[in-house]
Computed example of a mutant assay.
Amino acid sequence: MGELIERLRRLGRERREWICLPLGLAVALLGRSVLPLIAGAVAVPLVRRWLAARRRKREREQREAAVIELCGTVAGDLRAGRQPGEAVAGIKDAGMGPGWPEVSAAARFGGDVPDALRKAGRQPGAEGLNGVAACWRVAVDGGAGLAAGLERVAAALGAERDQRDELDAQLTTTRSTAVMLAVLPVLALLMGAALGAAPLQVLLHTPAGLGCLVLGGLLESAGLAWTRRIVRAAVGDGPGEGKGE
Rank of each mutant, 00 (worst) to 15 (best):
V113M: 09
R79F: 07
L167Q: 12
A87F: 00
R63A: 08
L157P: 06
D115R: 08
D115N: 06
A105S: 09
E61Q: 15
R122K: 14
P84T: 10
G158N: 00
K92T: 06
R137P: 01
L78F: 05
E64Y: 01
G72N: 15
E127D: 12
L30R: 03
C135Y: 03
C71N: 08
A87H: 02
G31D: 01
L35A: 13
D165P: 00
L167E: 09
R55M: 05
G143A: 13
G149N: 12
R161K: 15
A39K: 00
A89G: 02
A133G: 00
R152I: 06
A52T: 07
R49I: 05
G31E: 07
V47K: 03
A94F: 06
G95I: 03
E127W: 06
I38R: 01
L35N: 03
L157K: 03
L146E: 10
P114T: 07
A65L: 09
E86R: 09
L117S: 10
L117V: 09
E59F: 08
R82L: 10
L129V: 02
G143F: 04
A148G: 11
I91G: 01
L37Y: 07
A107R: 07
L70G: 00
I68K: 06
A116G: 14
V34L: 15
R54M: 08
V34Q: 10
E151P: 05
V74D: 02
K57H: 14
L37G: 03
D141M: 11
W100Y: 05
E127L: 02
E69Q: 15
L157D: 12
Q163E: 13
R79A: 15
E160W: 01
K57C: 07
G95C: 12
K119Q: 12
A66C: 08
A52W: 02
A147L: 07
D93N: 10
D168V: 04
A80C: 04
A144V: 11
R32T: 08
D168G: 09
V74E: 04
V103I: 01
P98D: 11
W136M: 02
G121E: 11
P45Q: 10
K119Y: 06
G149Y: 13
A107H: 01
P84D: 12
L78H: 05
V67I: 10
G95F: 06
Q123K: 09
V132N: 06
R56Y: 02
R164S: 04
K57W: 14
D141E: 01
A105Y: 06
P101M: 05
A65H: 12
L171F: 04
S33A: 15
R58G: 05
G121L: 11
A156G: 01
C135S: 15
R164W: 11
E86T: 13
R108K: 13
A106F: 04
S33V: 02
V67S: 02
L117G: 05
V103E: 01
A134S: 09
R137Y: 11
A133H: 07
A66S: 15
S104D: 03
E64P: 04
D77H: 05
W100S: 03
I68H: 09
L30V: 04
P124A: 13
Q123D: 04
A120F: 11
D168C: 08
E61P: 02
L51F: 12
E166N: 07
W50Y: 15
A87K: 08
A148S: 15
R108W: 01
A87V: 09
P45I: 08
R118A: 05
